[in-house]
Amino acid sequence: MPYNVDAVFQIAGIGIIVAMIHTILKQMGKEDWAHWVTLIGFIIVLFMVAMLIRDLFQTIKNVFLFHS
């Protein structure tokens, strides 16, 4: 599985950057924006994780020959 490590690093990077943006926006007194940015980052990461899990299930299906 070639994407495995890359995906983890990508998610970590998004987490770090979003955390930094959150901190800066909060410092500048834009807490509402900060929360929106965090929420959007979370949704993006959730989407990526959902894709990976879909792949995982597909693989399991293929391994155990559950072809419909």
Partner: peptide
Amino acid sequence: MFRTMGVLGGVLVVI
């Protein structure tokens, strides 16, 4: 804020 957000936003898009 604008200065930092420019850099961070670019990095985020790249990632």
